[in-house]
């Protein structure tokens, strides 16, 4: 659960990346590879490289015309006042699958949450650590200038986030914590630019543990907070306790 059993050689890592990109894996093997994709930027880069290698094959799928009802169904779902709540369970399932599907994170950024153990570290170390972690962000978000850094102070239960270059538009970024049960819980909306400070509720505090995933999805701000995300994350990363 916490540490990989044995470190993989670069060859093994690339072989696993090829299997994930091609879609050969199922069950526990697939889950483990997807988890690795979220936590290991080098592995994520291998998967992306395999997706690029295989991409030209897409052009050999033959075209077929769908029936006219398909567009009617899409149009109904993108109406301005679409009922977001109606399909929460289904959306959650779709989100979980799509969040983990390789392409979803290729253009994303690393999301680093830094814990400060109560009164144990001098402030300078806390200040210095983000720069260290940013290197990870750069690797995962190659080609993208999106960045979210987060710092959580356990003594005050205050979460501070700094966002740069998140998508702007009608939708706003919503922060989720995804604990071991795999169900995203909303921590609330955050600002697409600059700093957001939020107080974390006691229930949510317990979920902010080492290795747990944080993610950001773009959601309608008016109806926040949401029971479940409606789209794949634009950013995801693991909590590191320092």
């Amino acid at each position: 659960m916490t540490e990989p059993s044995a470190p993989m050689t670069p060859e093994e890592r690339d072989a696993l990346a090829s299997e994930l990109a091609l879609g050969l894996l199922t069950g526990a093997e697939r889950a483990e590879a997807l988890r690795l994709q979220l936590s290991d930027p080098a592995f994520a880069a291998d998967v992306t490289a395999w997706e690029r290698r295989l991409a030209p094959l897409h052009h050999d799928f033959a075209e077929h015309r769908p029936s006219l009802e398909v567009w009617a169904g899409i149009a109904a779902q993108i109406e301005p006042k679409a009922t977001v709540a109606s399909g929460v369970t289904r959306q959650l399932r779709v989100w979980r699958a799509s969040a983990l599907v390789s392409g979803a994170l290729a253009a994303s950024l690393a999301f680093v949450l830094l814990f400060r153990p109560p009164a144990s570290l001098p402030p300078q170390i806390v200040q210095a650590a983000p720069a260290n972690q940013m290197a990870v962000a750069q690797m995962v978000g190659q080609g993208s200038n999106m960045l979210v850094a987060a710092r959580y102070d356990e003594t005050t239960a205050q979460l501070n986030l700094r966002a740069e270059n998140l998508p702007q538009g009608d939708l706003a970024p919503e922060l989720w914590v995804i604990p071991a049960d795999g169900k995203p819980r909303s921590l609330g909306m955050i600002s697409a630019r600059g700093t957001t400070r939020m107080a974390v509720s006691p229930k949510m505090r317990a979920m902010l543990e080492n290795g747990v995933t944080l993610a950001i999805t773009m959601e309608p701000a008016a109806t926040a907070p949401h029971a479940a995300p409606s789209s794949a994350p634009v950013a995801a990363g693991k909590i590191s306790i320092i």
Binding site: I78, V94, S98, A107, G143, S144, P167, M218, A232
Partner: peptide, 12 residues
């Protein structure tokens, strides 16, 4: 296409 609707901002 609903995914495309939600994710188009991330197409680079």
């Amino acid at each position: 296409y609903i995914k495309v609707w939600n994710r188009a901002g991330r197409f680079d």
